[in-house]
Structures are given as structure tokens and as C-alpha cells.
């Protein structure tokens, strides 16, 4: 065997194994990195090279056995040793628990049409809104709009005005269409900076800036809005509180919001909903309930699509391991490493 071949072989070994090989052969081998280790191993007299090869080949059969058990594993994968001292402790039993692509793609389809049943948290949000403010922080797409609609319906039933704010004009327009279908065109109005459409409707849609301006005007005395009949303020996408330019508007709106009006804050998952609830409890007279969960109504799975068109699971588990220690699927890790090597290599040319 030529030195080049040995070098190639050593390069393919994990550094842990190189240390194992260097033990007893190289003085203070633990001080060396991979490149220096290989250099030192190659610098040994040629008869040592054969012993190194022998040692390596003693490890090989176990690797090949693993490879045959998992044909999907490519030949370039790191031969994983079965000897206890070389096994990586971080992912024991990983191979056994890995999902396959078939598992990942299992169960795709359209659910049979079911009558709509509100979730428990949705009902809770609506009942809690009777006695105080409510903050809803749930994952995207779990049905925050249902809470908004039901709360608005309740408030309108007792002749209270409802204001619904969204951060973007485009979203306001979408909501307008949606609410007009639900409540009828005469009961929904929209206010924008330069235009007022049906401003005396019981349900008003506007951007948060407009509501802030209304609250300013109401405080300044020139009241042109029925703020005394205002029963509910819905702030959609209230994670905009963290927006560097516009966050201040949400804050002002919450501070200046009249006491008799209930606040309903709808937001996507955020890091510190308790803190925000604590703040609102601190500044407003009515109690404030936080409704928060991380459960997705439609389960979400993650996959990795290689540029060659091969799909593999992203994680070793089928569902996304939220808030748990996670590991990449070994196949994905291999493909991605290969991808990185090739793209990084081709960038050099």
C-alpha cells in the first residue's frame, strides 16, 4: 500500500480513532489535531504502517456488518465502531429509532369533513373575555381568528363596538372580506388613514396606527368615535410589539386603551407571553388571562430535500421534536455534509 492510500484512509477516519491508533506509537498524541496526527502517523517507519493497517482492518468487519443492515447508508459513511471505547456516546441506539421516508410521508391526505368543534382553549378564551383581558399565544394556524370572531359576535350582541386591528393594510382587507361574509356588509366598517368606509358600523377594522390616533383624539377631547360604547379591542399579530419601528404603536394602544373595553391580544408563539400578561395585569384594572400552548392542530413534520431530488427525514423522530434535544437523521447529516463539501469545494475553483 502506498503512503498516499494510507493517507487517504486515515483522512476518512474520525479523529477519535486516529488517537486510538496513535496510542503507544506517538508521544503526547493527545496534543495533536487531525492533520498533525496523520502527519505524525505517516512519519512513522514503514513497518509501523502495516501494523496500523492491521489495526484498522480489525475494526472494519463490524462496520461492513452495519452497512449491510442499513443499505441506505452510503459506503462513504464513517465506519462506526462497535467497540465500546470508540462508540459515540451522544446517540446511542440511534439507528434503531430512526424513521424512514415512508414513515415520514405516511398519512398525507385530506381529513374527512367534520363538524367544527372549537378547541378547549378557544372556548376558554371566549369565556375569560367576559370578565377580563385575554392574551392568546398559540402557534400559527391554530385558529386564533375563531376566537376573534366569536368574541366580536358576543360583544356586538350586547350593542358594544368592536375594533379589530391588524398590522398591515393588506391583512385588513382580507379580514374585511372575511367579516363582511360573516356579519353582513352593513355591520362591518374599515378605517384607513385617508378613507372611512362605514365608520358607524359596530365592527371596525383598522390598522393599529389608526386606533392609536383615535385614542389620541379621544383623549384630546375632539371625540368623533363612540369610545364610551367600545367593548372590545382585538389586536391581531401582537407579536409586532417587538417590531423596531412600529412596536411603540402597539404599546401606546394598550396603555391608552379605555378601561371599560376588553383587550384581546392575538399573537403567534412568542418567548415571554407571561411577561406581557404580567405587564397588562400591572397596568389595567381588569384581570388578564394568558392562554398559551404549543400544540399544533395539524401536526408538522420536517424533511430534507437533497438537490438531487432525494427526500429524507430531517430529524430522527417523525414529528418535530419541539423543545427537546434533537438530532439530525443520519442520512440527512451524511447528505448535507456531502453537499457542503461539494459546494464549498466547487466554490474554490
Amino acid at each position: 500500500m502506498r503512503t498516499d492510500d494510507l493517507k487517504q484512509l486515515l483522512h476518512e477516519q474520525p479523529v477519535k480513532r486516529l488517537h486510538w491508533l496513535a496510542k503507544g506509537r506517538i508521544h503526547r498524541h493527545f496534543r495533536l489535531g487531525k492533520a498533525r496526527l496523520i502527519q505524525a502517523l505517516l512519519a512513522l517507519p514503514p513497518e509501523q504502517h502495516h501494523q496500523i493497517l492491521d489495526d484498522l482492518s480489525r475494526l472494519r468487519p463490524s462496520t461492513q456488518r452495519t452497512a449491510t443492515r442499513h443499505p441506505s447508508q452510503g459506503s462513504r459513511a464513517h465506519p462506526r465502531s462497535e467497540t465500546p471505547r470508540l462508540a459515540t456516546p451522544s446517540h446511542p441506539d440511534q439507528r434503531e429509532s430512526c424513521v424512514t421516508v415512508a414513515d415520514l410521508l405516511e398519512g398525507i391526505g385530506v381529513p374527512p369533513p367534520q363538524p367544527f368543534h372549537p378547541d378547549a382553549w378557544q372556548e376558554e378564551a371566549i369565556t375569560r373575555l367576559r370578565e377580563g383581558d385575554v392574551i392568546v399565544s398559540v402557534p400559527t394556524g391554530s385558529g386564533k381568528t375563531y376566537v376573534a370572531i366569536e368574541a366580536a359576535r358576543q360583544a356586538m350582541a350586547v350593542d358594544r363596538t368592536v375594533i379589530y386591528t391588524s398590522p398591515l393594510k393588506a391583512l385588513s382587507n382580507t379580514k374585511l372580506t372575511e367579516f363582511v361574509q360573516l356579519f353582513g356588509a352593513d355591520r362591518v366598517g374599515i378605517l384607513t388613514g385617508e378613507r372611512r368606509h362605514n365608520p358607524h358600523a359596530p365592527l371596525l377594522i383598522m390598522t393599529t396606527e389608526i386606533l392609536r390616533n383615535l385614542l389620541y383624539d379621544a383623549a384630546g377631547g375632539e371625540i368623533d368615535m363612540r369610545l364610551d360604547t367600545l367593548g372590545l379591542v382585538i389586536l391581531d399579530e401582537s407579536q409586532y410589539l417587538a417590531d423596531p419601528e412600529r412596536g411603540v404603536v402597539w404599546e401606546e394602544t394598550i396603555i391608552l386603551c379605555p378601561t371599560q373595553a376588553r383587550l384581546l391580544l392575538l399573537s403567534a408563539s412568542i418567548g415571554n407571553p407571561e411577561e406581557i400578561a404580567e405587564w397588562i395585569r400591572h397596568i389595567r384594572a381588569v384581570p388578564c388571562t394568558l392562554i398559551q400552548h404549543h400544540h399544533r392542530s395539524v401536526p408538522l413534520r420536517a424533511g430534507y430535500l437533497h438537490p438531487s431530488g432525494k427526500l429524507t427525514p430531517l430529524f430522527t423522530t417523525r414529528d418535530i421534536p419541539r423543545g427537546q434535544p434533537h438530532a439530525l437523521h443520519p442520512e440527512t447529516r451524511r447528505l448535507f455534509a456531502e453537499y457542503e463539501r461539494e459546494t464549498l469545494g466547487s466554490r474554490g475553483h
Binding site: V110, Q114, T140, V298, A302, H306, L311
Partner: peptide, 22 residues
């Protein structure tokens, strides 16, 4: 999470997917 949250339509899908392609 905002991006991935768009995966999976309520009432239309049994499961949603996030696919990462490099």
C-alpha cells in the same frame, strides 16, 4: 416558526410538512 407555521391547513390536511432544501 412563523414560516413553518404556514405548513398544514386546518381541515384540509392531516399533516403538514416543512421541507428544508439546501
Amino acid at each position: 416558526q412563523q414560516l413553518s407555521g404556514r405548513g398544514g391547513r386546518r381541515g384540509k390536511d392531516l399533516v403538514g410538512f416543512v421541507v428544508v432544501t439546501p
